[in-house]
Design a protein around this nucleic acid. Structure first.
Lengths: 127, 127
DNA sequence: TTTGATGCAAATGTTTTGCATGCAA
DNA sequence: TTGCATGCAAAACATTTGCATCAAA
């Protein structure tokens, strides 16, 4: 892969993601970066989000409510998606990597990992 | 919800899904049903797949490799997605519902369930 | 005869891409 | 200067939808 050159747009995207607790969609990122760089294009936002995710600097979350979401915290962690408001929350929880072993007990392939997200109602939507 | 009327197209879709071990995309279902009903439209396939999934007669799998996949086995079970060939396998494994409890230990919302899929290399792609 | 289901095509929503230009190294 | 990054617009994809017609009940 070619070396990445510095770009102020990419920095702005990284900065924005690192300081929000939301898990914004590409479009939300676009809307916010536009406040600072009105001429930035959606294509550039997508290109940089994908680049950063590939480099492991951010996480791409496929929560499948239509569009992908992005998380400025690159450390592996689990997510909770609220059925009520649709917001995505980070979960602090102990490792559940042992489920890979359980999954592999009757399977002849090689299980390398899992993707899990939890759903239900968040504190605000709960009753 | 209005009562469903019989339709031979829907029956054919259900029949096709129940007798394949693949986890076809909507487009693959379309291609196959067309052998029997050359005039069926992709819109009808999508409408019926969504209907059947809502009724709990089939499963819709969001494995996020581009398009959704469908499974004729409506009983909850876990899936394995091969990083090599992209195929989706059913996993026979014991329940891991306890991870809902683990996830809820430090979270104030109500965790109702989880979606998990495993990945790695399948027996064919493994070495 | 009533009303859900269909085929067709157009529309939608998200993401990617081609290309000329801009800018970092 | 070299070549990655950008802005713009068009394209690519998967999926949904409006509508006139068809067919189950």
């Amino acid at each position: 892969m070619a070396v990445m050159k510095y770009s102020r747009q990419r920095e702005a995207i990284k900065e924005y993601l690192s300081q929000t607790i939301e898990h914004p969609t590409a479009d939300t990122v676009y809307m916010n970066i536009r406040k600072q760089y009105p001429n930035i294009s959606l294509g550039t936002v997508y290109r940089n989000l994908n680049l950063l995710a590939e480099q492991g600097e951010i996480l791409k979350i496929n929560c499948r409510d239509g569009s992908d979401r992005f998380d400025g915290n690159p450390n592996p962690h689990y997510h909770f998606i609220c059925n009520g408001c649709g917001r995505v929350f980070d979960l602090e929880m102990e490792s559940i990597d042992h489920i890979n072993v359980i999954a592999g007990e009757h399977f002849k392939g090689n299980i390398e990992g899992h993707i899990t997200f939890f759903y239900g109602s968040c504190p605000d939507c709960n009753q």
